[in-house]
Amino acid sequence: MGQSQTSLSNGTTRDAIPFPPVTEIDKTFYAECYTGAAKRGWPPETINKYLPGGVVMGSTGYSHLSNRSTRILIAIYTACGIYLDDVFKKDVEVVSLFNQRFFEHAPQGDPVLDCFAQVLLELGSHFERVVSNIMVTSTLNAVSALTLEASTQGMTMSPSALGYPTFSRVMSGASEAYALFIFPCDLALPGFVQTLQQVMIFINNGNDILSFYKEDLDGESVNRISFLAAQSGRSKQAVLAELVEEAIKAYTNVLAILAPKPEALAAFRAFAAGYIGFHATATRYRLDELKL
C-alpha cells in the first residue's frame, strides 16, 4: 500500500494513507499460528473463533517483520487479547486474577489465559530487555483496565477529570506493546524509542476512530469518545474529528523523528498502512458496510 499526498488549506501537503482493500488471510501463516497456539495449550475447539483476528494483525500491521516466529507470537498475543475481552464479559473474576496468577506462575484456570501467560514469558526471547519489559507491563495494565471498566460501570464523568478518559484508554489498549512490536529486534533502542508516545497516540486514536462505527451502532458508551463527549458537552462527532487531527499530527511527528533513520521509518510506514488494513479486514469493525 503506497503513500499519497493530501493538500491542506494552507497549501502544504502531508502524507496520506489510502484506505486499503480487505486482505485475504494467508492460509500458510494461519496454519503456522494455529500450530503455535495449540503447542501453547490453546484448546482446538476455540482456536478458530479467535485466531483469525490475530492472524490478520500479524499479516497486516506487522507483515514487514522478517522474523516469522515473532509475527506468529504477535498474532497469538492479539488473538489472546481478543479472547480476554470476550471472556471478561462472562467471567470478570478470572480476568481480575490474571495478573496475580501470572506473577505467582500459577495456573490461570483457563487454558487460553495459560497460553497468554506463556506468550508474555516468551517476549524476552524476541525483543531487547527494556522493550520486552515494557511490553509485559503494558499488557498487564490492559488486563487491569478490564477490571477497572467493570468497577466503574455507570460512573458519572466529572468535567474536571480532564485526563481520565485518555488515561483509561491508554491502559486498556496495550499500545506500548503494539508500538514496540513495530521495530525489528536488531534496531538499537535509541533509533526509535523517542517515537513511543506519539506512536501510542496514533495507535489508540486510530482504533478509537476506526471502531467508532461499530461501537456507535452497538450503543456502546464505555469508551473514550463517549467519555470525552459527556465530559465536554460536545457531540461524539466533534470528539471524533478532534481525535482524527491528533492522530494525523502524531503520525507526522513520528515521520519527522524517524526521518534520519531509514530502517525504522520504513517499519513505521509499513505498520501504519497495515494497521488501517487490519481494521478494514477484521469483520468485528464492520467497516465493509461503509463501502470506503
Rank of each mutant, 00 (worst) to 15 (best):
Y50L: 05
A250K: 11
P262D: 11
V244W: 13
Q198M: 11
A282G: 05
P18E: 06
K236I: 04
K90Q: 15
Q3H: 12
P260M: 04
M200C: 15
S144G: 03
T70N: 12
L240Y: 15
T70Q: 14
E215A: 03
T12I: 07
A238K: 00
R286F: 02
R169Y: 07
Q5K: 15
I257S: 09
A229R: 08
N48W: 03
Q237M: 11
Q100G: 12
D26S: 03
L73W: 10
F127H: 08
P184H: 04
Q197C: 06
Y30G: 01
T60L: 07
L180A: 09
V94F: 06
N207F: 00
A79Q: 00
D114R: 12
E128V: 09
G163W: 02
S138M: 04
A272G: 09
V92K: 01
G191K: 13
Q153N: 00
S7G: 05
I257Q: 07
V254M: 04
A37S: 14
S221F: 02
A282T: 11
A177I: 11
F271T: 09
P165Y: 10
E149K: 02
N223G: 10
V92G: 01
D86N: 15
A174N: 14
R286C: 03
I76Q: 01
I72W: 08
V170L: 12
Q118F: 04
S132K: 00
M200S: 12
L240T: 07
S9K: 15
V55M: 09
G154K: 00
D216Q: 07
L228H: 02
I134S: 05
T139L: 01
R169A: 15
D15M: 08
P260A: 07
R284T: 06
P262L: 07
L243E: 13
K249F: 05
Y50D: 04
V239T: 11
G124T: 02
